[in-house]
């Protein structure tokens, strides 16, 4: 966001939205412009709902929590991926261009199928604690202890909200459909760090030890720059690459 304008009350916003409805055989991708009067503390969540209610009720987009927590509303905002719900229009110029996140299946307009992609990633990387006897775990007795700092480190990596911004910002992901991206690699480091997960490095290597995994990363680091949760993705990928190279 190079030029952040000083806020003017009652500014007119020109919101250009990349539209396409794959369910309509006649639909062709095009930019459509909506004029909107800016309101106090307006977010893109408020602006897009106003467009839907007053200008075009067919406009598709995804919001769930509208609080920056659930990761539903990733989109390209003036060329950069970000969460629309917590983007204030006052931080943007008069002209705002919105496009769906690339690399995901388009549902319509600004709505993309991140859910399908993330489920596929989870199944492929088996992003869960692998441990014997989970089904019959003793839940009456005292829980296993864990070092407090380790629990905090795990949460640090688990703050990922699977919004897809890192995938949209990733050079490799745009070239290789099967690249699991920073979101996948970060989850592997999270489970690798977790003593409850009994998988060995060799087993993790089977999951990420190739070009669709950790060796596909070109270190452009768009993922870390664009991560709305400011996760230390570059460090995690570097750490994982060194670890996997030793297997």
């Amino acid at each position: 966001m190079s030029a952040i304008p000083v806020q003017q009350v009652g500014r007119t916003l020109y919101i250009h939205i990349l539209r396409h409805n794959p369910c309509d055989p006649l639909s062709e991708a095009h930019l459509q412009t909506f004029e909107l009067e800016e309101a106090d503390a307006m977010t893109l969540f408020i602006a897009l709902n106003e467009i839907r209610e007053n200008h075009d009720p067919s406009l598709q987009f995804d919001f769930v929590c509208r609080a920056g927590i659930c990761g539903s509303c990733g989109m390209i905002i003036n060329g950069r991926p970000g969460l629309a719900c917590r983007t204030l229009t006052k931080d943007l110029p008069d002209n705002i261009t919105l496009a769906p996140l690339p690399a995901f299946e388009l549902i319509g307009d600004l709505s993309v199928n991140t859910g399908k992609w993330m489920r596929g990633m989870s199944e492929q990387l088996e992003t869960w604690v692998h441990s014997q006897g989970l089904e019959n775990a003793d839940i009456d007795s005292l829980e296993q202890t864990m070092e407090p700092e380790l629990a905090e480190q795990l949460y640090e990596l688990e703050r990922c909200i699977e919004c897809g911004c890192c995938i949209a910002a990733c050079g490799t992901a745009l070239m290789r459909e099967d690249f699991i991206g920073a979101v996948g690699l970060n989850q592997i480091t999270r489970f690798q760090l977790d003593p409850r997960d009994q998988r060995s490095d060799a087993q993790f290597y089977q999951l990420v030890g190739d070009d669709s995994g950790v060796f596909g990363c070109m270190t452009l680091l768009g993922c870390e720059d664009m991560c709305p949760k400011q996760l230390p993705l570059a460090t995690q990928i570097a750490f994982l690459r060194r670890r996997m190279a030793m297997v």
Partner: peptide
């Protein structure tokens, strides 16, 4: 409730711990 939380602890939730 204590069983639920212990189950989730075994399944992977990084509950904050006593220092």
């Amino acid at each position: 409730a204590p069983k639920a939380i212990r189950e989730l602890a075994a399944w992977g939730v990084p509950w904050n711990r006593v220092q």
